[in-house]
Amino acid sequence: MKKTIPLLITFVVGLALILAIFIPPEPFHTMNREFSVYFDIIAVFAFILGGGNLIRVHGNKISRKKKDYKYSFVTLLGFFVTLFVGLLKIGGPPGIQGEVMASGSWFLFIFNAILTPLTATMFALLAFYVASASFRAFRAKTTEATILLLAGFIILLGRTFFGYYITSWLPDSLSFLEIPNLANWIMAWPNTAGQRAIVIGISLGVAATSLRIILGIERSYLGSGE
């Protein structure tokens, strides 16, 4: 019951979707479409699950007065205020009938004033850490590391105007050695070759894992125990 039914569901859904590609007529066409719609709808419940989990984790932190528990109040306050404002579409011109992100809505205000700077600055911080990490760890210790470093430098230079000015004196017959052209060539050929080898490897891995899942050989997603 606890494992047999999930394995059966996985088998039926997975097999139906594979068959739908090779046998497009009914009932597989409808199964493909309906299962896709069901999948999209279930995905929303994952967001709700995420919200519920957030309340549970931070509620626990507060009730047990764990380290930094006071900041959990900030998380929960931010969560509930955004949820309240968004679900009731407060401030939007047509109210509950309009778009949730309508101009003038409080939800849009939260998006512009709070979510945007927080998410953008979190990622912008990485610029500083990339620089610091490169200074400390990017060493031409071996042939491989030197190749990596050279390719990185050509790309870094080739993607800016410095690259043009450094090698713009080269005659036309040697224009392929201009740094921007070298950067373009690296991206189009060796980079494509390396990425393609990785992509082909991953595709085989995904296909094998998918088959193992559908056939019930791979069951780790069901968790341990009965």
Binding site: I48, S72, V74, T75, F79, G86, F107, F111, L118, T119
Partner: peptide, 13 residues
Amino acid sequence: HLFVGVSAAYWMV
């Protein structure tokens, strides 16, 4: 912490 709370609610809404 504000980021975590607001973004989770944003996705839900």
